[in-house]
Write a protein that binds this DNA or RNA. Structure first.
Lengths: 128, 128
DNA sequence: CTTGACTCCGTACATCGGTACGGAGATTAC
DNA sequence: GTAATCTCCGTACCGATGTACGGAGTCAAG
């Protein structure tokens, strides 16, 4: 089965321009243009975009996804390595956010025990 | 005490261009240019940049920081509101990362119990 | 008083992942 | 057969946070 670009976009609930953008980035192949009429996209392309979207949800960048796609029939070890790298990046980011959460909570606690609304302890804390 | 722009940058361990960028963004004031010679930056500016950098560490965007700075002598309640909004955004982001971590771990576990290196279960999982 | 380092200023470029636009041609609906 | 809707394509732009560059002026050391 094949469909025009707008049907692809509709099926995947993405923007037409995004499909074009992926073509330009080489993430998907642009189907050949028929003598007359519009391009038609096969299932394969739709599936490939689904793959891209899932990998994005896992936090991979488009560049990393391009790697993944080119690794399609390559040793599992290489894919694993990329996933492990990603996992450690996620852990680091979480640690950052935890620190941030803690700091914000401290600041907010100071506000709550502050009875002078005209002056904010948060501003003070940020000041040198 | 005052210093030239490069000293400001050095003192704060940031790029000179960053100082200029903050000037352009209106986050700090550019000192007047003397008849002859270079601009001189007062302590106040240095402190203001320190404030900006600390707030950035807390995850505020430059736009939000501009708000904070303009809120300097405004009700604590307004500052609090911004901080609370930021806290909830941080929490959401953490939840996302936790989901992501979990998914990556599942994929990696599949790899570990896979003895065919030529084929990767991660690639399969992402495929439709 | 020359040389090297610094400043000033405007502008362009970088990243990331798209989104928008405009004009020409193709297709479909009525 | 004509009007409305799509497609195609190249290019420009978005937001956030800077970074880089080039040329002219200025300062400081020897």
């Amino acid at each position: 089965m094949t469909r025009t670009i707008s049907k692809v976009a509709e099926e995947l609930a993405i923007n037409i321009e995004t499909v074009r953008f992926y073509e330009r980035r080489g993430l998907i192949q642009q189907p050949p243009k028929p003598e007359l009429g519009y391009r038609h996209y096969p299932d394969e392309t739709v599936n490939r975009i689904r793959f891209i979207k899932r990998a994005q949800e896992l936090g991979f960048t488009l560049e990393e996804i391009a790697n993944l796609l080119s690794l399609n029939d390559r040793p599992c070890a290489q894919v694993q390595e990329l996933a492990e790298y990603k996992l450690s990046a996620v852990k680091e980011k979480m640690a950052d956010l935890r620190r941030l959460e803690k700091a914000l909570k401290v600041l907010l606690a100071q506000c709550h025990s502050n009875d002078d609304d005209s002056h904010c302890p948060i501003i003070d804390s940020l000041q040198p």
